[in-house]
Write a protein that binds this DNA or RNA. Sequence first.
DNA 1: GTGCTATATGTAATCGATTACATTTCATCA
DNA 2: TGATGAAATGTAATCGATTACATATAGCAC
Lengths: 344, 344
Amino acid sequence: MAQKIARIQDVAREAGVSTATVSRALSNPELLTEATRQTVFAAIRSTGYRVNRAARNLRTQQAGAILVLVPNLGNPFFSQILAGISAAFGSRDYSVLIADTKDHTTGGKHVVDYFLDAQIDGMICLDGAISPQELQLFEDNGVSGKIVFACEWAHDVALPSVRSDNVRGAQLAVRHLYDLGHRKIAHITGPQENVLTHARREGMMAERARLELPAREEWIIRGDFSLESGRRAGEQILAMNDRPTAVFCCSDQVAFGLMSTLTANGLRVPEDISVVGFDDIELSEFYVPALTTVRQDRRALGARAVSLLLDCIDASHTEQAATTEPVIVDVNLVVRASAAAPNW
Amino acid sequence: MAQKIARIQDVAREAGVSTATVSRALSNPELLTEATRQTVFAAIRSTGYRVNRAARNLRTQQAGAILVLVPNLGNPFFSQILAGISAAFGSRDYSVLIADTKDHTTGGKHVVDYFLDAQIDGMICLDGAISPQELQLFEDNGVSGKIVFACEWAHDVALPSVRSDNVRGAQLAVRHLYDLGHRKIAHITGPQENVLTHARREGMMAERARLELPAREEWIIRGDFSLESGRRAGEQILAMNDRPTAVFCCSDQVAFGLMSTLTANGLRVPEDISVVGFDDIELSEFYVPALTTVRQDRRALGARAVSLLLDCIDASHTEQAATTEPVIVDVNLVVRASAAAPNW
DNA sequence: GTGCTATATGTAATCGATTACATTTCATCA
DNA sequence: TGATGAAATGTAATCGATTACATATAGCAC
């Protein structure tokens, strides 16, 4: 059975020093004599002592945890970002909590409650669709300085963020299709209010305009990042009189949904229609056809988000505000098989 | 800026009662007069009081959090299970921590340390590949009663677990292929030491034997659940003289990797070779061809894992051991397009 | 040796809740 | 009315660490 866990008292007794000395050995070892330090560490080892997090947290007024707010855990893109964040914390003394905003079963618990309950020191928000009320709530409770956005960000809100170069990603995609010979290029967007939707759509439309390509209203199809929305978009394209020869999708998932529908209806990708995605999730390489897509550097996004958040937490102790200039992570185009020259 | 957060003292003063009464209003309201209860709640509202988790945890010797140990966060199957677990906790007063066992950057922090540091009250382990040493460590520290396995489980270890009916899943898959007319059925396994590998392979081989189908050594191909291993298996199959007409894969990811390779080499699925997966992740419906697969009920698995764990935690307070009889969740076959009659 | 400073260590208050035990209140009944 | 017990509330110890402040010790200059 569980032997009683040693407390700092026990270590102090064992080492013949005070609890203060033990505590110092752990957090400020340079204050101690080499000799005492040794004695204390020996006692720590022999007692199997481990600091009690709850006690430390109570005393230091920290939580030792951060929260990652994910729009949809089921989406591989997010889970891989999460893995990046997790990895980026590495040995840092923080636990990673996760909450899914899509998940409304949280029994009326607001995200801000995590802060108020002293459960977390900071938050990485992967969801740009935070309501103004919610943000006001953060502001009112003085925790907005402990929030950073990653991937998505909240419109009009001056909080630190890390994001991919979405505009450039869209340009790369359109440019690639153009270079292959495509002139009639459609786009499936994300959800209407989403910031990524906006950035990628604008990037796409700007590049299309720059290349003086034809533009039709119906070639901008509204989606929402999901597989299902890709399928719906596919049905719309099938029904068009003047079909595009290539489609740039706002996410890989959408591209999969699209290709699945097109193929099921006898159109071949890329022979009859080319498709480019966005994200480069692991599966994209293994789809049939392998998906040409804009790669987001998930590891970099995660790592930068973490360091940004740690900066914020540090800054909030010294009452300074961290920089709110967004950190932009470069993207690159991964050319595979789903986009090819059009067969006129 | 952050107004000072109210403490229980402040509420007590405001309500004109003692801190004990406030505490009771929160945790044992039935002990109080209707009148005092009202007064206290009014004071709680007016002060905006929220209980400090660290303080409560310290006093009650709980952590208020559980850990989910995931073999690979990047894998959609696991992230969707995680979503199920997350949802199942609902309003329960637990935070969900996650750790990725694949992620060796955790700076030497052992999983058992989460328990020893009083950071978690329990753990749901999705990884059956826990070493005997690790398990011994749990045992030695008296925390093995606070662990449940979900999906995977540790061989020879009597801990509570929830799992799909893997054997039946394999039977369903083989039977389906048989009914379509296939006689030469291959199998791509998971990693060698994995319990799921074992269950699914044995289920597959038993059914194949029962149906008196031919069996060849090389038709049992070793994989590891990953896309990449599916690709490698595909290459092996392509190189065979006596090719199977159908392949049952131990995971959807493997099936994708396999189909991707087969297709890239001119074989058509299902016309030339049929493929069946296992898991039914969201993407399976949208692959080309849509994947016929064995569906695991992720929500049920998550929900049962959570209730099992809560039982364990309760039981560990009363020194009883929870039941270790595995909970089996039913599976079903989802018939789509990747398996069809063979074309002799 | 005295006085002074710097360094090392100890004492005890503190973080914010919970709860055992003590006390008060109140209804009931002889 | 006073005794009795149950119900409601209060007092203060407690969980296990950290750290401000106090004290002890050592080193050095005079």
